[in-house]
Design a protein around this nucleic acid. Structure first.
Length: 378
RNA sequence: GGAGGGGUGGCCGAGCGGUCAAUGGCAGCAGACUGUAAAUCUGCCGGGUUCGCCCUACGAAGGUUCAAAUCCUUCCCCCUCCA
């Protein structure tokens, strides 16, 4: 029996070009995984998500256990079959919801009692139940059950939260059933404190995981602190395993994290922003609701090989968004996911060619420069 | 011709003597969004400002009052019912 395997193909400084081999296919890294919380990458068809080049997507334990229920999805052979996604899938453990639904929760030694945001009913999640649900969902990569430590917090609070996550990590590992080409990832916590991050990384490696995620970042600390935390975290992770920065981020966040040795990312931004009128482009973000796009015949981004990016004028997209037409949010979501995949392809190619430093310089300049006639973008 | 109801900021629509530059909603102008309780949320939205205020404003014109979008008179316009 062999778990998901990470193949390191090339490096440039700390950045890594690799591949994750799974039971359900390959994932080229650095990779961006679109988020499909409720077994849907919101606003997109499953095959359209695949057509953007995304090789792996996320689904969520907490949301799917509440609706439609993990056991129901298991009857369909897992989330992949349920939603028609043929590639590998990664499920978040519900750990993020432990934080984001804080008002509706109670943590004790065993796990977390939640109140459903849907109907107020009480539910229980523990490392054992979270792993069991992820098995029922047939997740290619299962995430350890953790607590995403909020920011800001005192160092004592961060340490306590991290230790809780480490105990839960051990229980997650014990509950996990090893299967060929599947994997279990541990999650490093410790806030912005280098000693806590190092301690967490060491504890996880002592337990032994198939990949290592970095959690508890992009929760309000700012890009500079996030980067400096990565600087003191990735060196403590094994080079032979994939590293996954959870919940990140904006294009510049991702590029900066790749430079610091991260291989995998997920973020709701491309789809959420797509629904709230923001389009990410090679030249920085655009708010498609803004009046300045009303007469603009150019497409969102010719550089991105995607119909949503090339075949519709900004004027038309602006009109759809203004009119609350569903197609507007679908096209922007589609374009954003395609843009993120385009970015990751460029990053991978650059690492392979040893030109990442140069790419990052150009990319940073282009993002900051904005549109030629648009100094307010970004 | 008679009886009644009404005209409020780009639109709809509250207010019915002072706490009203005037509730709401829409439209408009921007901003935010990072392991998704989000097709969501926030700010601005008459003009000027030395940010203290000052102008112009609730169909029009007059009037009552310390004070009027709010009361009275006349006029203009709209709607309903009766002839």
């Amino acid at each position: 029996m062999s778990a998901v395997r990470f193949e390191l193909m090339a490096t440039e400084s700390a950045a890594r070009r690799g591949r994750l081999h799974t039971a359900h296919g390959l994932v080229d890294t650095p990779a961006f995984m679109p988020v499909g919380t409720a077994a849907t990458v919101k606003g997109m068809f499953t095959d359209t998500v695949a057509a953007t080049g995304a090789q792996m997507i996320l689904a969520n334990t907490y949301h799917l256990m509440l609706r439609p229920g993990a056991e129901r999805i298991a009857k369909f052979g897992g989330v992949r079959q349920f939603m028609g996604w043929t590639g590998p899938i990664l499920t978040d453990s519900g750990g993020y919801q432990v934080m984001s639904l804080a008002k509706l929760r109670k943590i004790d030694g065993g796990g977390v009692t939640f109140q459903s945001h849907i109907d107020g009913s009480k539910h229980f999640l523990s490392p054992e139940r979270s792993i069991e649900i992820q098995h029922l969902l047939d997740a290619t990569v299962t995430m350890a059950f953790d607590e995403c430590t909020p920011y800001p917090a005192t160092k004592d609070e961060v340490a306590e939260s991290m230790q809780l996550s480490m105990r839960w990590a051990e229980r997650s590992k014990a509950a996990y059933k090893v299967r060929d080409g599947y994997g279990l990832f541990g999650i490093v916590q410790g806030g912005i404190h280098s000693d806590l991050r190092a301690e967490s990384a060491a504890k996880l490696q002592a337990i032994g995981f198939d990949g290592y995620a970095i959690g508890g970042l992009a929760v309000g600390e700012g890009q500079e602190l996030m980067f400096s935390t990565l600087d003191v975290t990735t060196p403590h992770l094994p080079t032979a395993s994939a590293r996954y920065l959870m919940g990140v981020g904006k294009p510049m966040d991702i590029v900066g994290a790749v430079l610091r040795g991260v291989d995998m990312f997920d973020c709701v931004l491309p789809t959420r922003s797509g629904r709230t009128a923001q389009a990410f482009t090679s030249r920085g973000p655009l708010n498609m609701r803004n009046a300045k796009h009303a007469d603009d015949p150019q497409p969102l981004d010719e550089a991105v090989n995607c119909p949503a990016s090339r075949n519709y004028s900004r004027a038309y997209l602006h009109h759809l968004i203004r009119s609350d037409e569903i197609l507007g949010l679908m096209l922007l979501s589609w374009h954003n996911v395609a843009y993120y995949q385009h970015l990751m392809t460029q990053v991978r190619d650059a690492i392979a060619a040893g030109t990442l430093q140069r790419f990052v310089q150009d990319f940073t300049a282009a993002q900051a420069g904005g549109e030629p006639d648009d100094t307010t973008a970004g």
